[in-house]
């Protein structure tokens, strides 16, 4: 599950935008700094972007830029956790995470309990990995605990979640990006999720 990249040139051609627009959006912080990934290629240094993230972001900007000023847009797209909260009952009703997840991990919480965005994000990620059939419910417990214990330490800085298994024993890790990581043989990387990407997806679901 390596992140797919797109070069700056491909991006501009595909979306029909100009260099000026791209740099303007960067100045206005519509495109976060850490999405600009510099890599050396045979033509010299080139800039790449995480493909899914940048394509959805640019669609969003192009759709909204006629109605909103760029500064207003920047607030909407801020990579930090949005101040969004949801009651458990609503979470259940709107089917944002599957009922299995709520039953298993939130059965003790009352219906009226209000979840912060952070909490919603944890549920969402657990749900995503469960749905993909990559993780068992027991591992879900561990994942939830890992995120609860460590995710706040990143204080909104970009990070990734790693899920690996060796000889049937699973483990999770949170990693600040950009980073390179190599494993011993026998370790199988099952999932690598960008938290920023998950925040975006969840935001899309909640809107």
């Amino acid at each position: 599950m390596e992140q797919e990249l797109i070069s700056k040139k491909e991006l501009l051609d595909e979306k029909g935008i100009s260099y000026g627009q791209l740099y303007r959006w960067k100045r206005k912080q519509l495109i976060p700094e850490e999405w600009f990934i510099r890599k050396s290629t045979f033509t010299g240094q080139e800039t790449f972007f995480p493909k899914d993230l940048i394509l959805t972001r640019i669609d969003k900007i192009m759709n909204m830029k006629d109605d909103l000023s760029l500064d207003e847009l920047a607030d909407k797209l801020s990579p930090l956790l949005p101040a969004f909260e949801l009651r458990k009952a609503d979470l259940f009703k709107r089917n944002i995470v599957s009922h299995v997840v709520l039953e298993r991990f939130a059965s003790e919480d009352k219906e009226s309990v209000v979840y912060t965005y952070e909490k919603l994000l944890y549920f969402y990620i657990v749900d995503k990995l469960l749905q993909a059939g990559e993780m068992s419910l027991e591992e879900g417990d561990k994942l939830l605990q890992t995120m609860k214990d460590h995710y706040p330490k990143f204080e909104g800085k970009p990070c990734e979640l790693l899920f690996m298994r060796k000889m049937g024993v699973s483990s999770f890790a949170l990693l600040s990006v950009p980073a390179e990581i190599y494993f011993e043989t026998g370790v199988k990387l099952i999932a690598r999720l960008s938290m920023a990407e998950s925040i975006e997806h969840l935001k899309g679901k909640l809107e």
Partner: peptide, 21 residues
């Protein structure tokens, strides 16, 4: 090393790559 932009008007410039409209 790289200059990218919409309107580019250069004199006395040394660059590896210039890209623009």
């Amino acid at each position: 090393s790289v200059i990218e932009g919409d309107d580019i008007d250069l004199e006395y410039t040394e660059a590896d790559i210039v890209r623009g409209n």
